[in-house]
Design a protein around this nucleic acid. Sequence first.
DNA 1: TTCCGGCGGA
DNA 2: TCCGCGGGAA
Length: 231
Amino acid sequence: MNTIELYRKLLAKLGPQGWWPFDEEYHRINNSDARFEIIVGSILTQNTAWENVKKAIDNLKKERLLSIDGINKVKLEFLEELIRPSGYYHQKAIRLKNLASYLVENYNSNLDVLFEKELYDLRRELLELKGIGRETADSILLYAGSKPIFVVDAYTMRLCNHIPLYISDSYDDVQRFFQDNLKSFFKDEEKLVDVYKELHALIVYLGKTWCRVKPICNTCPIREDCNYYTS
DNA sequence: TTCCGGCGGA
DNA sequence: TCCGCGGGAA
């Protein structure tokens, strides 16, 4: 079992996951607000079930506040109220407003300028912001910016240990492992970005459904390749 | 009760 | 490295 096989097997068994920006809606309206929505989602979903994030995003849409200027102008207390379903709403409201004001002041609310920056320069820059750690920064870069960077999360770590695919507790090491493997196989950068997007989504689904803290191995789609099940 | 597409602070 | 943050659904 290697990263390529993992990708192929998960895609074959589970199908494409339809994460951003695979939705037709995001292809159709490939504008700044759509990209900003991905950024907002990546912050709201921090340790939070996606269903709850959707409610928060719907609330923002309903109030027509799901834009850089909208978040920048809205009162903090009202923003908290709108995003309450996504949990941690005090800190997440502050994180959103920090980010929005940062985008207004430094990029004149223009995400195209933001994503023109070199990948790792921009990554360092995003990590400076309060409320954006490695996973959130990488989600923003990959899903909103279509930059070639692989998102690692708790599921990825667990899966790597169970198979085992690569043993490490280091986010950076696991990320480098996936990227080195996949980019040597998928030479075309656009394809590589799509693989990064899809594989992370597939791993999340796998982790949410089978490879949990208490794994449900007997129906897991990759149990035959996993040492955790076969031993 | 558990778990969720983490993060900052100490 | 551990802890608080937090609502919603199973």
